[in-house]
Design a protein around this nucleic acid. Structure first.
Lengths: 118, 118
DNA sequence: GTCAAATTACGAACATCCTCGTACAAAGGT
DNA sequence: ACCTTTGTACGAGGATGTTCGTAATTTGAC
């Protein structure tokens, strides 16, 4: 109530996500091509559920984390929901599998293989 | 004016390719994330064999083509061989499938789906 | 209301990438 | 030798991308 006049509706805490059909292959590949972001995706896949940003340790500062999470969200790779002071992240598995069958799994498998010394 | 003294051995016409084990997932994803390069890969996959650079029409100049082909070669996505005045390009299907099973196929399928109106 | 925790926004530095134009090199045909 | 075809090298411009630091916001607990 201090800063926002009225232009933006009350809940400025809802984040924009692309519709499943609007997810672009190029955006997804670009999002996954960065090592920091790929490690986020791997962590979320390993967990299977949802993780707060603070639960995934990354070798960059918090503002850089914000940037990477946004790239992942805007590309349609993950969904972000506020819960209390935390922001929960969840892979958009079904949306991705429907749109690009096998892509996420093959990337995750490849990342796991490389990570463990290949 | 031969420009090149003797530093480089006679055949400057052999191109460096990464070993199969040296192919990096991040490099491959980055290479495939560009629309021009993805169209090259799709064309090569559709053909199944090898194509000269000049046989794949791209909406960029020749020097930009050279750049994109190099990115694809250096990332391990394709192999390039000189043949006469032409440079032939071929997908490194087996190398990619061995290293990152399913990745190339899922990307190609995704690209085909998007291209035809998804 | 005050405080702490989690995260964002903004601006800036720096690196990388995509694109082009021009000049050049290699191979093949005449 | 000359010309054409094909592709390269170099340099530059402009757009994106990654990273950070600092100041601010939101929520929950006290």
């Amino acid at each position: 109530m201090t800063k926002q006049p009225d232009a933006v509706p009350a809940r400025g805490r809802e984040l924009p996500h692309p519709d499943p059909d609007a997810i672009r292959l190029g955006d997804v590949l670009h999002a996954l091509a960065d090592p920091v972001r790929l490690s986020v995706v791997s962590a979320l896949a390993a967990d299977g559920g949802e993780l707060a940003c603070s639960e995934i340790e990354l070798p960059v500062t918090r503002s850089t984390c914000t940037h990477h999470y946004r790239v992942l969200r805007e590309s349609g790779v993950l969904r972000q929901i506020y819960r209390g002071t935390a922001k929960m992240n969840q892979l958009r598995r079904k949306d991705l599998d429907d749109r690009f069958p096998g892509l996420l799994d093959s990337v995750l498998a490849a990342a796991a293989g490389e990570g463990s010394g290949g």
